[in-house]
Design a protein around this nucleic acid. Structure first.
Lengths: 192, 192
DNA sequence: AACAGATAATTTACCCGTAAAGCATGGGCG
DNA sequence: CGCCCATGCTTTACGGGTAAATTATCTGTT
């Protein structure tokens, strides 16, 4: 949850005429970091840092903030992801499928399922044909939980993004979608 | 490291004529997830998901991939962030400052410093005036390590982003910068 | 039928990060 | 001075994640 590109500069107060704590007027923290790197290594191409650093930093901030509505429901983000996967697919999923859906290891899914089962949010049944596989589904309580949280979650996300106007958000979503498509298609191959 | 918006749909093979595993031709995985949500909850405003989900997912993928050059040097991303903070600021930093720079807790910094000190990459000296504070600086080996990794790291990042052309990257960086500026300015206040 | 090897899920051991408590020190303020 | 609280860092306890080993089951081959 970090970036090659770190956060706020502490030793650069002399650069920021205003106060040094309110971005928005001048650049974000990644911009400051990039400036520092360029000062130290003038030859470097810092272009990628400006994208990747910002994505990482945004993700870190968003995740911190984004989880607020979830915590009220006593769920971690990972748990909600699992429940959400079941809810949005609309049918049962096996643990392996859940691992794929939530991009986590099978072991993590096993642990979460244990917890969520104990809390009565999901149920499991064994496959009749293949006794290795399990099928997991939401209980009614689980579905109500997801459906109860989701609107608040989306409203919260909307609020968090309210600093950008609609066309900007659309543009951003489109560009991120393009990048993500590329990454998902090509990243496994890049394991250099 | 996750998203409200999960990853690949498993149960939607009937929707995807091709194979269901290669994005790139059709949308990214977040798009598929959003479609699922909309099918289940038609009234929902999925706009924010398209941005936030993609940011989270991109961050997750990038971090996995991005760390490859680092691992070759036997460094974790967090360790490199710490070293990088020292390198780019160009002067000593105290543990608290490092915590701010790397957005991690003081405890985490303490642990990393212990490791990095043992490996001879950083040194510490106590402040003469205030014996509570420590000053940390890179050793020559530490600086060489950072300078050795950085070009490879940036080259790798460039390769990872090569799917987008230059104007797109610029646009993306600008939009992310704007978003990040907003988030950094306003997120602390949004702790609702 | 019986074995080899694949596959699904779980268990185990461990790493890493945080939050909270703890320790040492410093800077007022009576 | 001596007390009190703030500050900087470290330690402790714990939760959550992964990789690798483990168990159980299935499938294909002969």
């Amino acid at each position: 949850m970090t970036a090659t590109e770190g956060p706020r500069a502490r030793g650069d107060e002399e650069l920021s005429p205003g106060d040094g704590n309110s971005p928005g007027r001048r650049g974000d923290t990644v911009a400051a970091v990039v400036r520092q790197w360029r000062a130290v290594h003038p030859g470097l191409d810092t272009g990628p840092m400006e994208v990747i650093g910002r994505i990482n930093r945004c993700a870190a901030l968003l995740q911190q903030a984004e989880d607020a509505p979830l915590r009220r429901a006593g769920l971690s983000r990972a748990e909600f992801d699992l429940l959400g996967a079941l809810r949005r697919t609309g049918h049962e999923l096996t643990p392996s499928e859940l691992a794929r859906e939530t991009f986590s290891s099978g072991a993590a899914v096993t642990k979460r399922l244990k917890q969520l089962t104990e809390r009565g949010l999901v149920e499991r049944r064994g496959d009749t044909r293949d006794r290795r596989v399990a099928h997991v589904r939401l209980t009614d309580a689980g579905r109500d939980t997801v459906d109860g949280i989701l609107p608040a979650q989306l409203a919260y996300e909307t609020a968090v993004l309210s600093g950008l106007d609609s066309p900007e958000l659309g543009e951003l979503a489109a560009l991120l979608g393009e990048l993500l498509g590329q990454l998902e298609g090509r990243l496994g191959a890049l394991r250099a």
